[in-house]
Every structure is written in C-alpha cells, then in structure tokens.
Amino acid sequence: MSANYNLFYFFKQFPDEEACREYFEKRRWGNTPVCPHCGNAQKVYRYKNRRTFKCAHCKRQFSVRTGTIYENSNIPLQKWFLTYYLIALSKKGISSIELAKIIGTTQKSAYYLLQKVRYMFEHRSSENQLRGTVEVDETYIGGRKRGKRGRGSENKTPVFGVVQRGGRLSIMPVENTKRKTLEPIIYKRIKSGSHIMSDEWWAYTKLDKNYKHSVVKHKSKEYVRGNVYTNTIEGAWSHLKRLIMGTYHRPSKKHLSKYCAEFQFNYNTRNDSLKAKFNKIIDKNQIRVSYRKITDI
C-alpha cells in the first residue's frame, strides 16, 4: 500500500479539526466525558461550541485536550494526527525538516512536536516484564571513533537492550556497561526464571542466580550454538544505527533516550496494522509535556 494511498484515507477520515476532536474524544472517553480535574463522570455539561465542558462536581472547565500532550499547544489536532500517521507509516523515521514541509509549520515547531512525541513514547511505554528466551546486549551510539566495548567510548553513549524472541524490545542509554549498572535493569525488565542469552561480557557473569543463562562466545568467533545466539538484539542495533545515521544523524547524548524510545515503539509495533499503530500512539496521549521537559533547561 503506497504512502499516497494511505494519506488519501487519512484525510478522508480526518478532513478537519472537528473530525479529529471527535475521534480523540471517543478514544479517550468513549461515550462519557470524564473531568480530568476530579475524575467525575456523572454530570458533565457540554457547551454549545462542542469543544468545552464543565464539571458539575468541581465546577471547572476543560476540553478533550486538558491533561494531554496537546494542552497549551497551538498546533491543530489535525497536524498532530498527521504526524502520528507519518510515524506509523515510516520505517525509517521522519526528520523535522521533512515533517515541517508536510504539515506546514516551521522546522523549529516540527522539531519540538517530534520531541514531545518521543518524550511521550519514553514515558508511556509498557512496564510488563519480558519472559521466555530473552537476549541482552549493549552497543555504542554516536562519536567519530570506531571500536569495540569501551574503546573510543569517550565520544559515544552506551545503549543497553533486552529483547524477547518473537516479542518486545526494551532499550535505553546507560552511564556505563558495568555490572552494577546493567543488573538492576535486567532484574526490572526480565521476569525471574527466564532464559537469558548473552555474549561473554563480564557484567553478565552472575545472572545464573535468577535466570537460566547461556553464553555465546564472540571472542572465539562463535556466533550461533544451536539455540544460543544474540542475533535478534544485534539485528535491532543494526536497524537503530542506520536510522540514526540516515535520518537523525547525530542526536545529542541528552536527547538520545527519546530517539531510542521512538525506535523501541516502532520495533514493538512492527507487525501491527497502520490503524492499530496509529491508535496506540493516540492512546498514549494522556501525558502533559512542557517545553522544559523536552529541552532540559
């Protein structure tokens, strides 16, 4: 299905701001508006303009944007929705320059819009533990020096990842790849008793206490031993690096976690339909994202 074909149906479903608002109301509340201030759903009045509500309990006004990523944003919902659609459609990501041309904003506005979406991905991701057979590995992003673990790392940021075979991926930048840094993440992200696959990096040597642990010996040029390999996570690293080099170039260390969160979302929804992926983005929208949060001032 071509991009133009999909975009045609996007504008057919969301021809104007009113259609976007009605769709988001349905996704957020169903048929019963809920006051975001006090949680009351028993008695809520809708004003004649159709956009504004008033809660009979706390007497405060609100709209479907209140308490969401859209609050205090001057960007129309239609442009937000089109951005989600383009993210769901693209396997290689979308740059702020390209997005600005498509939705008709400045590059700066498009950049902050994308950063808000990435922040949302980062802070509204699943906390469910991975289980079964899980591969763990780390890589380095950024910098001009090439090398193995630690070599040239003064210019690079370590990124740690865990992936359930046939399932979800979880990645995040880390301060270093020492045992005291990686083990707490593993315990949090992977269910006890799972079968962990790793290489021989020393930070993984004590996982046998809580997990079944198999090691593939890369230093001995062993990459697959029956069911023991880390090819899944290494394949994810390859895609991540091509995405960053080809679309985002060199994101700063400060913002790398947001780009990792976007890649993680796209990886975990890779088998979803376009509509399902779009709705998953919409359903994450109940988070307020201030300018300060995406710039770390």
Rank of each mutant, 00 (worst) to 15 (best):
G30E: 09
P33E: 13
K43Q: 10
C35H: 08
H37R: 03
K12Y: 06
R28Q: 13
R46D: 04
V44I: 14
F24K: 04
F14G: 03
E17L: 15
N31C: 08
Y23F: 14
Y47N: 04
D16E: 06
T32P: 01
F14S: 01
Q13I: 01
C20F: 11
E25W: 13
E22R: 13
C35N: 07
R51S: 10
C35W: 10
K48A: 12
R50Q: 08
G39C: 12
Y45N: 06
N49E: 00
P15Y: 09
R21C: 11
F11W: 11
G30D: 14
Y23I: 10
F24N: 02
K26E: 11
P33H: 08
R28Y: 06
K26A: 13
Q42S: 08
R51W: 05
D16V: 10
R28F: 10
R50W: 00
R27E: 15
K48Q: 05
K43M: 01
F10L: 05
E17D: 12
R27Y: 11
R21W: 07
R21L: 15
R51T: 02
F11D: 06
Q13V: 03
V44E: 03
R51C: 00
P36L: 01
E25K: 15
K12F: 00
Y23E: 14
H37F: 05
Q42Y: 03
K43D: 09
D16F: 07
Y9C: 01
K43R: 09
R50C: 05
R21V: 14
E18D: 12
D16C: 05
N31W: 12
K26Q: 13
Q42K: 14
P36D: 12
F14A: 06
K43C: 11
R46N: 07
T32Y: 11
F14D: 06
G30K: 15
P33T: 07
G30P: 08
E22P: 06
C20K: 13
F24H: 09
E25R: 15
K12V: 03
E18H: 15
P33S: 07
A19E: 15
F10G: 04
K26G: 02
Y23Q: 10
F14Q: 09
F14P: 03
P36H: 06
C38Q: 01
V44M: 02
C20I: 15
E18S: 15
H37Q: 08
A41P: 00
E25S: 11
C38S: 02
F10R: 00
G30H: 11
Y23V: 04
F10I: 05
Y47W: 05
N40F: 03
K48C: 00
K48V: 03
E22I: 09
R27I: 15
D16Q: 07
K12R: 11
C38G: 02
T32C: 10
P36C: 02
G39H: 05
C20R: 08
P33A: 11
Y45G: 00
R28K: 15
C35S: 04
H37A: 09
F24D: 00
E22Q: 15
